[in-house]
Design a protein around this nucleic acid. Structure first.
Lengths: 142, 142
DNA sequence: CAGTATCCATGCCGATACTG
DNA sequence: CAGTATCGGCATGGATACTG
């Protein structure tokens, strides 16, 4: 880590992984880079109803490690989607809640979930068909 | 969608990475596992307007490798989001188009893009603030 | 043109151990 | 409780070469 460097991080082109703005693509990748990872949405969903403490989140989100929860909430905090509040008590208490921006994401997430529920059977069937038709081919491990 | 199959496909735990259905989480992770990767949405966006051939896709999607385009369209095909058509000509011609299910995703993608465009400035600012306040901390490389 | 096949780098993520 | 630090596996994805 060696935190002793005064150099100002310029952070150029931080939000623009792809080169051209005229394409409608870029915005999408941007959101997905934010919530497309393994845990972010689950944290957001969990915080949608009410603020949660660190351990509460960890217990609520099945399978997440301490490390990943920390990383996930830190990133969400950095992006201004989650507000982190530290109460200087002993033992320490920290809670997390959605900011206004973060809360606006819950609608989006709901839309995603709805789509999934609606189309899940069709997709499952499509997969089944495909795997029947291509028994030798294995996409998953390719 | 022509539900002409009597056999109830059990689909053994293929679509259910997390263990419990009562949580609202699972559906979301499901979509994200499908479109959350690096290229899928870009392919979908590109196919939204009209069918495309393989090379057309590759040229349209800046930076995608041959390998990744193949993998991406294959997965989308397997999930029944994209239809692949081979014309037995020489040289070979293959085109890809969205299925009805795939097309239904474009609305979703549009929603994502809109959210991104709307909130991008706020998020950029939040990041900036955060990085100012925590100059030593580096989340990106953690 | 439309792919396969192979090799390899990165980095996401999990497991574990330790701290204020 | 709420983290940090370290190590290591494994999947994702890029580069390159080859094929029908």
């Amino acid at each position: 880590m060696s935190p002793t460097h005064t150099e100002v991080t310029v952070a150029p082109a931080d939000l623009d992984p792809c080169g051209h703005e005229d394409h409608p693509d870029c915005g999408i990748r941007d959101v997905l880079d934010r919530i497309g990872d393994k845990w972010s949405v689950l944290v957001i969903v969990e915080l949608a109803s009410e603020p949660r403490r660190f351990r509460e989140l960890q217990r609520a989100i099945d399978g997440i490690s301490q490390r990943m929860l920390t990383l996930t909430v830190r990133r969400l905090e950095r992006d201004g989607l989650v507000l982190r509040t530290v109460y200087p008590t002993v033992p320490p208490k920290v809670d997390y809640r959605l900011t206004a921006t973060g809360a606006s994401l819950t609608h989006l997430v709901k839309t995603l979930a709805d789509w999934s529920v609606t189309h899940r059977p069709v997709i499952a069937e499509a997969r089944h068909q495909y795997d029947q038709a291509h028994p030798d081919l294995d996409i998953r491990s390719a």
